[in-house]
Amino acid sequence: MPDNYDDSIEIKVENLDLWYGDNQALYDVSIDIPKNSVTALIGPSGCGKSTFLRCLNRMNDLVKSCRIQGQVHIDGQNIYSKDIDVVGLRKRVGMVFQKPNPFPMSIKDNIAYGPRIHGAPKKDIDTIVEEALRSGALWDEVHERIGMPALDLSGGQQQRLCIARTLAVRPEVLLFDEPCSALDPISTAKIEDLILQLKKNYTIVIVTHNMQQAARISDYTGFFLTGKLVEFDRTEQIFESPKEKATEDYITGRFG
Protein backbone atom coordinates (compact mmCIF):
# COMPACT_ATOMS: atom_id res chain seq x y z
CA MET A 1 0.00 0.00 0.00
CA PRO A 2 1.29 3.48 -0.80
CA ASP A 3 2.01 5.80 2.14
CA ASN A 4 -0.66 8.25 1.06
CA TYR A 5 -3.36 5.56 0.70
CA ASP A 6 -6.85 6.96 0.35
CA ASP A 7 -9.66 4.42 0.12
CA SER A 8 -11.86 6.69 -2.01
CA ILE A 9 -9.24 6.36 -4.73
CA GLU A 10 -9.43 3.18 -6.81
CA ILE A 11 -6.51 3.81 -9.13
CA LYS A 12 -3.48 5.81 -8.06
CA VAL A 13 -0.81 6.41 -10.68
CA GLU A 14 2.44 8.08 -9.67
CA ASN A 15 5.12 9.44 -11.97
CA LEU A 16 4.51 6.95 -14.71
CA ASP A 17 6.99 6.95 -17.61
CA LEU A 18 6.76 4.51 -20.50
CA TRP A 19 9.03 3.76 -23.42
CA TYR A 20 8.53 1.70 -26.56
CA GLY A 21 12.17 0.96 -27.34
CA ASP A 22 13.85 4.38 -27.48
CA ASN A 23 10.60 6.29 -27.88
CA GLN A 24 9.13 7.68 -24.74
CA ALA A 25 5.34 7.46 -24.96
CA LEU A 26 4.34 8.62 -21.47
CA TYR A 27 5.99 11.30 -19.38
CA ASP A 28 5.62 11.51 -15.63
CA VAL A 29 1.88 10.84 -15.50
CA SER A 30 0.28 11.07 -12.07
CA ILE A 31 -3.44 10.71 -11.57
CA ASP A 32 -5.90 9.70 -8.85
CA ILE A 33 -9.03 8.01 -10.15
CA PRO A 34 -11.86 7.87 -7.59
CA LYS A 35 -13.91 4.74 -6.95
CA ASN A 36 -17.30 4.35 -8.63
CA SER A 37 -16.65 7.11 -11.08
CA VAL A 38 -16.32 7.34 -14.84
CA THR A 39 -13.07 8.89 -16.01
CA ALA A 40 -12.70 9.83 -19.67
CA LEU A 41 -9.29 10.14 -21.29
CA ILE A 42 -9.22 12.39 -24.33
CA GLY A 43 -6.54 13.68 -26.66
CA PRO A 44 -5.43 13.51 -30.29
CA SER A 45 -4.27 10.25 -31.87
CA GLY A 46 -0.87 9.17 -30.61
CA CYS A 47 -1.10 11.26 -27.42
CA GLY A 48 -0.64 8.21 -25.16
CA LYS A 49 -4.17 7.82 -23.80
CA SER A 50 -4.58 4.20 -24.96
CA THR A 51 -1.04 3.38 -23.88
CA PHE A 52 -1.90 4.77 -20.46
CA LEU A 53 -5.14 2.76 -20.32
CA ARG A 54 -3.22 -0.41 -21.15
CA CYS A 55 -0.86 0.23 -18.23
CA LEU A 56 -3.80 -0.19 -15.87
CA ASN A 57 -4.08 -3.93 -16.47
CA ARG A 58 -0.55 -4.51 -17.72
CA MET A 59 -1.55 -5.11 -21.32
CA ASN A 60 1.70 -3.41 -22.30
CA ASP A 61 3.57 -6.39 -20.85
CA LEU A 62 2.70 -8.09 -24.13
CA VAL A 63 4.72 -5.49 -26.06
CA LYS A 64 8.32 -6.68 -26.00
CA SER A 65 10.06 -3.33 -26.32
CA CYS A 66 7.91 -1.71 -23.65
CA ARG A 67 9.58 -0.41 -20.48
CA ILE A 68 7.80 1.23 -17.57
CA GLN A 69 8.89 3.38 -14.64
CA GLY A 70 6.69 4.68 -11.86
CA GLN A 71 3.86 3.17 -9.87
CA VAL A 72 0.29 2.10 -10.48
CA HIS A 73 -1.77 1.19 -7.43
CA ILE A 74 -5.18 -0.37 -7.78
CA ASP A 75 -7.19 -0.61 -4.60
CA GLY A 76 -3.99 0.09 -2.71
CA GLN A 77 -1.91 -2.62 -4.39
CA ASN A 78 1.07 -1.91 -6.63
CA ILE A 79 0.20 -3.81 -9.80
CA TYR A 80 3.79 -3.69 -11.07
CA SER A 81 5.28 -5.37 -7.98
CA LYS A 82 7.04 -8.68 -8.61
CA ASP A 83 4.60 -10.88 -6.71
CA ILE A 84 1.52 -9.76 -8.60
CA ASP A 85 -0.49 -12.40 -10.50
CA VAL A 86 -1.06 -10.77 -13.88
CA VAL A 87 -3.92 -13.09 -14.86
CA GLY A 88 -5.62 -12.33 -11.56
CA LEU A 89 -5.02 -8.62 -12.20
CA ARG A 90 -6.72 -8.77 -15.58
CA LYS A 91 -9.68 -10.48 -13.92
CA ARG A 92 -9.90 -7.56 -11.50
CA VAL A 93 -9.35 -4.99 -14.25
CA GLY A 94 -11.47 -5.92 -17.27
CA MET A 95 -11.12 -4.40 -20.69
CA VAL A 96 -13.46 -3.75 -23.60
CA PHE A 97 -12.03 -2.82 -26.97
CA GLN A 98 -12.89 -0.66 -29.94
CA LYS A 99 -14.26 -3.44 -32.12
CA PRO A 100 -16.60 -5.97 -30.55
CA ASN A 101 -14.66 -9.23 -30.36
CA PRO A 102 -16.96 -12.06 -29.32
CA PHE A 103 -15.44 -15.55 -29.35
CA PRO A 104 -16.73 -17.74 -32.21
CA MET A 105 -19.05 -19.67 -29.93
CA SER A 106 -22.54 -19.29 -28.48
CA ILE A 107 -23.70 -16.27 -26.48
CA LYS A 108 -23.78 -18.40 -23.35
CA ASP A 109 -20.31 -19.85 -23.85
CA ASN A 110 -18.88 -16.39 -24.43
CA ILE A 111 -20.07 -15.35 -20.99
CA ALA A 112 -19.22 -18.65 -19.31
CA TYR A 113 -15.69 -18.79 -20.74
CA GLY A 114 -14.04 -16.63 -18.08
CA PRO A 115 -15.86 -18.03 -15.04
CA ARG A 116 -15.10 -21.61 -16.22
CA ILE A 117 -11.40 -20.84 -16.55
CA HIS A 118 -11.42 -19.28 -13.11
CA GLY A 119 -13.03 -22.46 -11.74
CA ALA A 120 -16.68 -21.53 -11.26
CA PRO A 121 -18.76 -24.64 -10.37
CA LYS A 122 -20.87 -25.96 -13.26
CA LYS A 123 -24.11 -25.52 -11.34
CA ASP A 124 -23.47 -21.79 -10.97
CA ILE A 125 -22.84 -21.13 -14.64
CA ASP A 126 -26.47 -20.47 -15.68
CA THR A 127 -26.90 -17.94 -12.89
CA ILE A 128 -23.63 -16.23 -13.71
CA VAL A 129 -24.59 -16.03 -17.39
CA GLU A 130 -27.99 -14.54 -16.63
CA GLU A 131 -26.59 -12.04 -14.13
CA ALA A 132 -23.86 -10.93 -16.52
CA LEU A 133 -26.26 -10.57 -19.45
CA ARG A 134 -28.66 -8.60 -17.27
CA SER A 135 -25.85 -6.31 -16.06
CA GLY A 136 -24.77 -5.91 -19.67
CA ALA A 137 -28.33 -4.83 -20.60
CA LEU A 138 -28.59 -7.66 -23.11
CA TRP A 139 -30.64 -10.31 -21.30
CA ASP A 140 -34.06 -9.06 -22.47
CA GLU A 141 -32.93 -9.17 -26.09
CA VAL A 142 -31.23 -12.58 -26.09
CA HIS A 143 -32.52 -14.72 -23.22
CA GLU A 144 -34.55 -16.95 -25.55
CA ARG A 145 -31.60 -17.70 -27.80
CA ILE A 146 -28.45 -17.80 -25.70
CA GLY A 147 -27.38 -20.94 -27.53
CA MET A 148 -27.04 -19.12 -30.85
CA PRO A 149 -23.68 -17.96 -32.19
CA ALA A 150 -22.57 -14.67 -30.68
CA LEU A 151 -21.37 -13.52 -34.09
CA ASP A 152 -25.00 -13.43 -35.29
CA LEU A 153 -25.73 -10.53 -32.94
CA SER A 154 -25.71 -6.92 -34.20
CA GLY A 155 -22.57 -4.82 -33.63
CA GLY A 156 -24.12 -3.00 -30.67
CA GLN A 157 -25.32 -6.27 -29.12
CA GLN A 158 -21.89 -7.83 -29.65
CA GLN A 159 -20.29 -4.94 -27.80
CA ARG A 160 -22.72 -5.30 -24.89
CA LEU A 161 -21.94 -9.03 -24.93
CA CYS A 162 -18.25 -8.20 -24.59
CA ILE A 163 -19.06 -5.94 -21.63
CA ALA A 164 -21.20 -8.70 -20.09
CA ARG A 165 -18.36 -11.18 -20.67
CA THR A 166 -16.03 -8.86 -18.78
CA LEU A 167 -18.54 -8.50 -15.93
CA ALA A 168 -18.94 -12.28 -15.62
CA VAL A 169 -15.58 -12.59 -13.84
CA ARG A 170 -16.58 -9.87 -11.35
CA PRO A 171 -13.94 -7.21 -11.92
CA GLU A 172 -13.45 -4.02 -9.86
CA VAL A 173 -12.34 -1.80 -12.69
CA LEU A 174 -13.56 -1.62 -16.29
CA LEU A 175 -11.36 -0.18 -19.01
CA PHE A 176 -13.01 0.88 -22.26
CA ASP A 177 -10.89 1.68 -25.30
CA GLU A 178 -13.12 3.56 -27.78
CA PRO A 179 -16.05 1.21 -27.11
CA CYS A 180 -18.51 3.02 -29.37
CA SER A 181 -16.42 4.06 -32.34
CA ALA A 182 -17.74 1.18 -34.45
CA LEU A 183 -21.37 1.65 -33.36
CA ASP A 184 -24.36 3.67 -34.59
CA PRO A 185 -25.85 6.43 -32.37
CA ILE A 186 -28.58 4.21 -30.92
CA SER A 187 -26.16 1.44 -29.93
CA THR A 188 -23.84 4.14 -28.61
CA ALA A 189 -26.63 5.56 -26.43
CA LYS A 190 -27.30 2.07 -25.04
CA ILE A 191 -23.64 1.55 -24.16
CA GLU A 192 -23.49 5.02 -22.59
CA ASP A 193 -26.56 4.29 -20.45
CA LEU A 194 -24.98 0.99 -19.49
CA ILE A 195 -21.73 2.67 -18.46
CA LEU A 196 -23.66 5.07 -16.23
CA GLN A 197 -25.45 2.08 -14.66
CA LEU A 198 -22.21 0.18 -14.15
CA LYS A 199 -20.41 2.95 -12.30
CA LYS A 200 -22.53 2.17 -9.23
CA ASN A 201 -20.53 -1.04 -8.86
CA TYR A 202 -17.35 -0.45 -10.83
CA THR A 203 -14.70 2.15 -11.44
CA ILE A 204 -14.64 2.95 -15.12
CA VAL A 205 -11.95 4.46 -17.32
CA ILE A 206 -12.83 5.18 -20.94
CA VAL A 207 -10.68 6.34 -23.81
CA THR A 208 -12.73 8.22 -26.38
CA HIS A 209 -12.26 10.41 -29.42
CA ASN A 210 -15.82 11.57 -29.07
CA MET A 211 -15.58 14.66 -26.91
CA GLN A 212 -19.32 14.89 -26.44
CA GLN A 213 -19.32 11.31 -25.21
CA ALA A 214 -16.72 12.24 -22.61
CA ALA A 215 -18.86 15.23 -21.63
CA ARG A 216 -22.04 13.16 -21.45
CA ILE A 217 -20.94 10.24 -19.35
CA SER A 218 -17.79 11.02 -17.39
CA ASP A 219 -17.30 12.50 -13.94
CA TYR A 220 -13.62 13.26 -14.55
CA THR A 221 -11.73 14.01 -17.72
CA GLY A 222 -8.02 13.76 -18.41
CA PHE A 223 -6.52 15.47 -21.44
CA PHE A 224 -3.35 13.90 -22.89
CA LEU A 225 -1.02 15.53 -25.37
CA THR A 226 2.29 14.12 -26.64
CA GLY A 227 2.53 11.64 -23.79
CA LYS A 228 1.80 14.11 -21.02
CA LEU A 229 -1.29 14.48 -18.91
CA VAL A 230 -1.97 18.16 -19.55
CA GLU A 231 -5.01 18.51 -17.34
CA PHE A 232 -7.18 16.32 -15.14
CA ASP A 233 -10.28 17.68 -13.47
CA ARG A 234 -14.03 17.34 -12.99
CA THR A 235 -15.63 16.98 -16.41
CA GLU A 236 -17.80 20.10 -15.91
CA GLN A 237 -14.66 22.08 -15.19
CA ILE A 238 -12.81 20.78 -18.25
CA PHE A 239 -15.70 21.54 -20.60
CA GLU A 240 -16.70 24.87 -19.04
CA SER A 241 -13.45 26.45 -17.93
CA PRO A 242 -10.33 24.40 -18.60
CA LYS A 243 -7.23 25.79 -16.95
CA GLU A 244 -4.80 25.03 -19.77
CA LYS A 245 -4.93 26.71 -23.16
CA ALA A 246 -3.98 23.43 -24.88
CA THR A 247 -7.06 21.76 -23.36
CA GLU A 248 -9.27 24.63 -24.50
CA ASP A 249 -7.81 24.49 -28.01
CA TYR A 250 -8.39 20.75 -28.23
CA ILE A 251 -11.95 20.60 -26.94
CA THR A 252 -13.06 23.58 -29.02
CA GLY A 253 -11.54 21.93 -32.08
CA ARG A 254 -8.93 24.61 -32.74
CA PHE A 255 -5.91 22.38 -32.88
CA GLY A 256 -3.37 22.88 -35.63
Binding site: M211, F239, E240, E248, I251
Partner: peptide, 9 residues
Protein backbone atom coordinates in the same frame (compact mmCIF):
# COMPACT_ATOMS: atom_id res chain seq x y z
CA UNK B 1 -21.27 23.39 -33.46
CA UNK B 2 -21.24 22.08 -29.88
CA UNK B 3 -19.42 25.05 -28.37
CA UNK B 4 -17.39 24.17 -25.28
CA UNK B 5 -15.14 25.93 -22.76
CA UNK B 6 -14.57 29.64 -23.55
CA UNK B 7 -16.77 29.42 -26.65
CA UNK B 8 -19.61 27.95 -24.63
CA UNK B 9 -19.25 30.71 -22.03
Amino acid sequence: QNPTAGDMR
